[in-house]
Structure formats: C-alpha cells, structure tokens
Design a binder for these strands. Structure first.
Length: 658
RNA sequence: GCCGCAAUAGCUCAGCCGGUAGAGCACCGCAUUCGUAAUGCGGGGGUCGGGGGUUCGAGUCCCUCUUGCGGCACCA
C-alpha cells in the first residue's frame, strides 16, 4: 500500500498509509490521542477528523480545548439548535446557521413567531440532544438526490442552497443521529463534544439572503464556549458592556435625553453640551491654519439636491420642508409651494461657497470645514441613542484641489486623523479602501482612476504609520466615489467606523465648478469629502462607552466638585471654587447639609473625576483633600498645589504639545 | 421599513383570574454639623404612552397609532 508522510507541529514526521483517516492516524499513535481528537488541521485547513488523508501534509490534531475547536463547538451547536427547533416545531424550515463572533445563529422559516419562553425550552432540548452524543457523519450526495430529498421534506430554502453550490463542488450532508443538514463542514466527531457551556441569547427577525424584499425569517442567537468558565467570562463581559451603555450613562451623568416628540434627536443638557463644546473647540483648534471654517444654509431648494444627486438617491431618507401655510393649502398657487430639503450633507453647500467668485489655481487647495448639523430621515428601526440619530453634527470638510494635489491632501488628512484619534486615546486604527458599489454614477474609467490613486495612498499611509492596519471593502464605496473608512477599536475591544475620506470626481462635474489654471484654461477640481469624528453625537457616544463615563479631565463637563464636611467650611469652599475657576477649571460646589459619605457617593455615581473635600482642617490650612473617581484614597495638599496639578491635567492634549 | 417584545410617579420597578394604583431612590419640609460610596422623621407627587372598542366595571382583555428595546435591512 502506498504511503504518505505527515509532519507534526513539533517537526516529527511519520509515514502512514495513503487514504488513512485522521482518526486512524491518531489511533495508531495513541488511543488517548484518538479519543481527544475532535478535528484536524491539514496544511492549515481545518477538517473533519474522519476525512481521509491523500497526500503528504502538515498535520495537527485538534482537541476540544484547542482554540481551533471553538468555531466547531459553535457550528455544531448551531446544528443542534436546528435539530431541537425542528423537534419542537415540526414543519419549521431550516436555512443557514453560521458561526459568528462569540457564538452562532440559525435562521428558521416558521409560521408562528418564537416567544421569549421558547428559548429555555429549546435550550433544554439541545442539552438532551447533546447528552445522546450522536456521531457527526458526513456523506457526499448527488445533487439530484439532495434536491429530491429536501424537496420531499418541504425544505425549500435548502433546495435553493443546493442549487447555489457551484458545479464541481460536493454536496455534503452531515448527519447527527436521525437529523441531518446540508453543510460545508467541518464538524467535530459527535454532538457530545459540544459540551454544556452554551446559552441561547435572543431571537429576532432576519431576511433570507439578507434581502429586505425577500422572505422574513426568524433568527435565534446563541453563544458557545469550550468551558463554563469561558462562558461565564463572556456573559460577565456583556454585563459590563451593558453598564457602559451611553444611554444609561447619559442619564446618570445628566448629559442628554431623548423624548417621544423628537424621535432620533438629542436634548443636550448643560453638562452634555459642555462636553460637546469641548470636542468642537478641540477640533476647531486642530483645523486652524489649514482649513477655513464656513457655514452653509440648513435649508436649500430641492433643485440643488437634484443636481447633486442626493434627491434621486436618498429621497426616502431626506426631510423636505415647505412653509406651514403651503402644507395647509397645497393647492393654493398664490402661496410659495417651493420644496426645500433640510441638508443631509454639507457638500452641495460647500460647492456653492467654492463657486462664489472665480478661483485660480493659486487658491488651491481650498479646504472648507463646517461643524454642519445635518438631518437624515433614518428608518425608525435604525435609531439607537446617540449612535444613530436623525439630526447630527459632522466635523465635515471638503477639499477642492487639482488631481496632482490629491495624494498629498489624502496623506495630510490621514496625519490629522491619526493625531486626533491618538488624542482621544484610540491606538488601533484600521483603514479600509471601499471600492465601487454596484449602483453608482460616473464612468468606469473615472472609478479605475480614483481607486488606483487611493490604493497607492493607502500603501503609503500604512508604510508611514505602524498603527495603521489596512484592508479592502469591496463594493462599499459611495455612489459618487471610492473612500477610506477609518475604524477605531475601543477600550473593550469593539470596533467603530468613524473617519472617512472620499474622493469625488462627480460632484464637481455635476455642479460644473472650475478653477482657472496657469495656462488660463478652465479646469475642474477634484473634491475630497472628509470627516474625522464623523457624527459628533456618535463620537461622544463612543467616547462615553469606551471610557465607561470616566472621561479624561479635559473633556469632563464638571471637572471637580468642592464638597464640604461642615458648614463652617462653606466660605473657604466658595473661595476655593473661585480660585479653581479663575484657573479655567469647570468646578462646582456642594455645600448641602449632607454627610460627606452621601456627597462622595453621589458625585462618584455622577462620574465627577475629582472630588475636593474640605472640612474645618482644610479651611484653616488652605488645603484640599483630593479624591479621584474610582479610588477610595484621598490626598491632602494645598489648594495652590491642587490647582496647578488639575490645571496641567485639564489642558487638552493638543495644547500640551505646543 | 420588517420580525418580536415593551411602555405604570423624575428614576428603577411591583401590581394574580378584570373590582377604580404601590415600593425604593429622587423631590419638598423639619431635625441633624457629621471626616471620604446612602442620617432620621414627616410630606407632596400618577388622566397607568395616545385614541378607540369589549364590559356593570379596564393599568389588566381586543384593535390602532406613537415611542422605546433586541435583531434584520439601511447608513450619502
């Protein structure tokens, strides 16, 4: 019999019969190895342990506790979920059930909706199935057999999936006892290896093939881990994330609120607005010298949006306004029936600003910045706290330049982005190039050209800054041009797309803008749209969640509270606050007739970074007892020392550099 | 927008088979001057999200609208 050579992770080599399965090889080494093997990695590819090995390869046996097994546990768990659901509700059709970050889901087509009480029932059935520990058995079926089988069972979605498998690829079936599923695999050797460290979390609606026009399915989400400890850790992490929810913190810190009459719009409280303004002031300083800050109208004639293309593309998501009397009397032609749009973007406004007056090549690049408040009629189901709203402020800018200047402008923007993110404590940044979408405007030649420039720039950016990871988002560009998407990773590992740089050859053409070049000819500039924070509202939401409300001193709306222990210290407390404010600090007093314990608790819950406690002693010695948020220790120092230290710490990072 | 769930005092929540609302915190008043995460006592506060229906009677059951929550879809 022909032999092949397997190479093990430790470099050891072993000759085995050609066509032997992974399990057979493991058994030949040691029965215990075979017993704990749930899968194998062959030349870097995760496979069933029962698959035959046909040629020389690097092999690694995967145990249930190996990191490679985690996706198998989750995927197997999805299969068991599907079996349990079909057990409990015969006639339910199964569709797909992939592994996702931290878990899995399965989409079902079922006439009756799931009920919250169903989850524990399903979970119970799953544990029973797992307890039976049926082996996973793979079979390769003929396409016709598979189609006939699923058709006969009324599994119409599976039939579609079989049809979608490319010719020449096997139609694989995985059996677990009586139940089976069409599946690419791989799987572990039996359902028993899934273990018990899983939990069904929630269910929701979803769409077949992600198509909102298509059939609506019901999705069940679960999480699964190798051990109870890992599961518990994950659930604990979810609880922690919930505590940081900016909607909850916003209320506790008295920053903002939402109410029924203004769906998707923010009521900024005084403290929240102070935070907002601290962000705007910072960004404004970062623009100084390079950008001209402008302000374009909030409401502009519909025709402008037709020219820009927004009306055609995003009409459903735009707010349109007429005069109130025109609304009441829509047929009265004597009244102004003109339709205006609330701006959803700043760019058409900035184009008008560029157009005003003749521009020379000497003026370029023209960089117009605006903290523009835009309105977008977002779908009701999309709204989410500060993260997705219908009115938000962008730190927007448009650069009008020549094609020759494009690369340098993109790099300049990139430098600013990275510097800003660093100031807010974000170290890891991913920049992805989003290329032409299916639905778009402009010629292919234009897209080729623009994408090529950005590809080149992306390579340069990555070469110049080791913090930048890069990638490509195929087909994710905007309708008018390709873009860079900047994604930040927050303190608890979540990713947020914030910045964007978009190259646009279209808008200049649509609006017919030009500059006079050195040769006296009219030339069309290129436009670069760029935002760093993106939506300031959302960016603050991210900051609040990332810091858990423990904002750095320079951003905290109330930087310190001077709290008295006895009323004898009131006068001194007032003097201290006066001195602190004189130093530019945002400070409040708490002279209430309450115990110091009460005050400490209250200001801690409100996330005030610094508590300056003053009693009789401090008043007599002109000192303060400094207690930092999150610490139960306090340090007594002179008022002057405290002011100097806080003033230094509260200086925004950009001002410290100068 | 779609699927599911929910909405009771400022906040967090209880309220059974339908019988006309309750707690804690917060707020107000009084007492207390106290050394680093809740001082005590007293008081006020609700068209039970809006509208309609069933019923002798609706916070509770039904319909509908609005808003929120979890996803999906969308995100210029």
């Amino acid at each position: 019999m022909a032999e092949i050579t397997l190479t093990f992770p430790d470099g050891a080599k072993r000759a085995v019969p050609k066509g032997a399965s992974g399990i057979e090889v493991a058994k030949s080494i040691a029965p215990s190895l075979a017993k704990r093997t749930v899968a194998m990695v062959l030349d870097g590819v995760l496979m069933d342990a029962a698959d035959p090995i046909e040629h020389d390869a690097a092999i690694k046996f995967v145990a249930r506790t190996d990191p490679e097994a985690l996706e198998l546990i989750r995927h197997d768990c999805a299969h068991v979920l599907a079996e349990a659901v079909q057990d409990l509700w015969p006639g339910t059709q199964v569709t797909i059930g992939p592994v996702i970050e931290n878990g899995f889901f399965y989409d079902f087509a079922k006439a009756e909706p799931f009920h919250p009480d169903d989850l524990p029932r399903i979970e119970k059935r799953m544990r029973e199935i797992i307890a039976k520990s049926a082996p996973f058995a793979k079979e390769v079926w003929g396409r016709d057999k598979a189609k006939a089988f699923f058709e006969e069972k009324g599994e119409h979605f599976k039939v579609e999936l079989v049809d979608a498998i490319p010719a020449g690829e096997d139609v694989k079936i995985y059996k677990q006892g009586e139940w089976l599923d069409l599946c690419r695999g791989p799987h572990m050797t039996s359902t028993g290896q899934i273990g018990n460290a899983f939990k069904l979390q929630r269910f929701s609606g979803s769409y077949w093939r992600g198509d909102a026009q298509g059939p609506q399915l019901q999705r069940i989400y679960g999480t699964a881990w190798a051990s109870d400890k890992d599961l518990a850790a994950h659930l604990h992490m979810l609880e922690e994330a919930e505590k940081r929810d900016h909607r909850k913190l916003g209320r506790e810190m008295d920053l903002y609120h939402f109410q029924e009459e203004g769906p998707g719009t923010v009521f900024w409280h005084a403290k929240g607005w102070t935070l907002f303004q601290a962000l705007v002031s910072y960004m404004r300083r970062r623009l100084a010298g390079d950008y001209d800050e402008v302000n374009a109208p909030q409401v502009l004639d519909k025709s402008l949006w037709e020219t820009s293309g927004h009306w055609g593309w995003y009409q459903d998501n735009m707010f349109a306004v007429k005069s109130a009397s025109a609304f009441e009397n829509p047929r009265d032609e004597a009244r102004d029936q003109r339709v205006f749009a609330l701006k959803p973007m700043n760019c058409p406004g900035h184009v008008q600003l560029f157009k005003f007056g003749l521009k020379s090549y000497r003026d370029l690049p023209v960089r117009l910045a605006e903290f523009g408040c835009v309105h977008r009629y977002e779908a009701s189901g999309a709204l989410h706290g500060l993260m997705r709203v219908r009115a938000f402020t962008q730190d927007d800018a448009h650069v009008f330049c020549t094609e020759d200047q494009l690369e340098a402008e993109c790099l300049k923007i990139n430098d600013l982005m990275m510097s800003v993110y660093k100031d807010f404590g974000f170290q890891e940044v991913t920049v992805k190039l989003a290329t032409r979408p299916e639905k778009r405007v402009g010629t292919d030649a234009m897209w080729d050209h623009a994408e090529n420039i950005l590809r080149k720039v992306l390579a340069k950016m990555a070469a110049e800054d080791s913090r930048i990871k890069t990638g490509i988002n195929e087909g994710e560009g905007t309708f008018y041009g390709p873009k860079f998407e900047y994604t930040l990773r927050d303190a608890i590992g979540r990713e947020w797309q914030c910045g964007t740089t978009q190259v646009d050859f279209n808008l200049p053409a649509r609006f017919g803008i030009f500059f006079v070049d050195a040769d006296g000819e009219k030339k069309q500039p290129v436009m670069v749209h760029r935002a760093i924070c993106g939506s300031l509202e959302r960016f603050l939401g991210i900051l609040i969640e990332s810091t858990g409300g423990h904002l750095p001193l320079w951003l905290a709306p109330v930087q310190a509270v001077v709290a008295t222990i006895v009323s004898d210290a009131d006068q001194y407390a007032n003097e201290a606050v006066k001195a602190l404010r004189k130093a530019g600090l945002r400070v409040e007093t708490d002279l209430r007739n309450e115990k110091i314990n009460y005050k400490v608790r209250e200001h801690s819950l409100a996330k005030v970074p610094v508590l300056l406690v003053v009693g009789k002693r401090e008043a007599e010695e002109r000192k303060v007892s400094v207690r930092r948020l999150g610490s139960d220790k306090s340090t007594v120092m002179s008022l002057d020392e405290a002011i100097a230290a806080l003033k230094e710490e509260a200086t925004p990072p950009d001002l410290k550099r100068d």
